[in-house]
């Protein structure tokens, strides 16, 4: 009962707040908002609240998700408004909706995320580069995990890739089953274009998160089981 999902933004200065600090920030925000957040039982009770997917430090988002439970039923609009008075500049709740008791939380249903990426350099014939990627069977990149570098094929992690004016829009895998970091894809694009890739110069923004149902990409705010 009283399960909710909210969609929120994390922009401007707030992109410098890491995931763990953001959890703490929300725990305090719900208290300042005066919401009757539910606590787990046990020796160390904690707020029942979970986030869909951590966002890399420095990346902005207008499509973050958090699930939480309240001790009493409260109107979604009221929850949204009270949270918005309690959150710092750069974080805004866009929408709150109720989820069904049986619905799974965002973290377990997320399959994909859409990113908008601003490149710091002009890439020649970028539209063709993107089309080539989509036409390839394999996209092999080098991935370093704990000093070990291995080659992985990320082609299957790329669902959609297109241009929005100068920016790259990438719908790629996200979540516990498959997960592609957008920087890896952009690094690949820079590499094949013969450009130097400097991670801190790339601005990226997460736009939305999806679950896949019957081949369809459904935004998490619509996947509420109601």
């Amino acid at each position: 009962m009283n399960k909710y999902r909210m969609k929120f933004t994390k922009t401007d200065k707030m992109k410098f707040i890491g995931h763990l600090d953001m959890l703490k920030l929300f725990q305090r925000a719900v208290k300042r908002a005066g919401l009757p957040i539910s606590y787990s039982t046990g020796f160390n009770p904690h707020q029942i609240m979970s986030f869909a997917s951590p966002l890399a430090l420095g990346t902005e988002s207008i499509g973050e998700y958090c699930d939480f439970r309240l001790d009493e039923k409260i109107d979604c609009l009221r929850i949204k408004d009270s949270l918005n008075t309690a959150l710092p500049e750069g974080m805004t709740v866009l929408e709150v909706c109720e989820t069904s008791e049986s619905s799974k939380n965002s973290a377990s249903i997320i399959d994909a995320a859409l990113y908008e990426i601003v490149c710091d350099k002009k890439i020649n014939r970028l539209d063709e580069v993107l089309a080539d990627i989509l036409n390839s069977k394999e996209i092999i990149i080098k991935k370093t995990v704990k000093d070990k570098t291995k080659e992985v094929n990320i082609r299957e992690d790329i669902y959609k890739l297109y241009l929005k004016e100068e920016n790259v829009m990438a719908l790629i895998s996200a979540g516990s089953k498959r997960n592609l970091k957008p920087e890896l894809l952009i690094e690949y694009i820079y590499n094949i274009s013969g450009l130097e890739f400097i991670p801190i110069k790339i601005k990226s923004k997460r736009i939305e998160m999806y679950t896949v149902k019957g081949g369809e990409f459904i935004p998490l705010k619509e996947a509420v089981g109601l």
Partner: peptide, 17 residues
């Protein structure tokens, strides 16, 4: 931003609390 992304704990320098 790129300066703040180079340093440890950039939130030390942004205010907005």
């Amino acid at each position: 931003d790129e300066i703040l992304l180079k340093v440890e704990k950039p939130a030390r320098y942004i205010g907005n609390e």
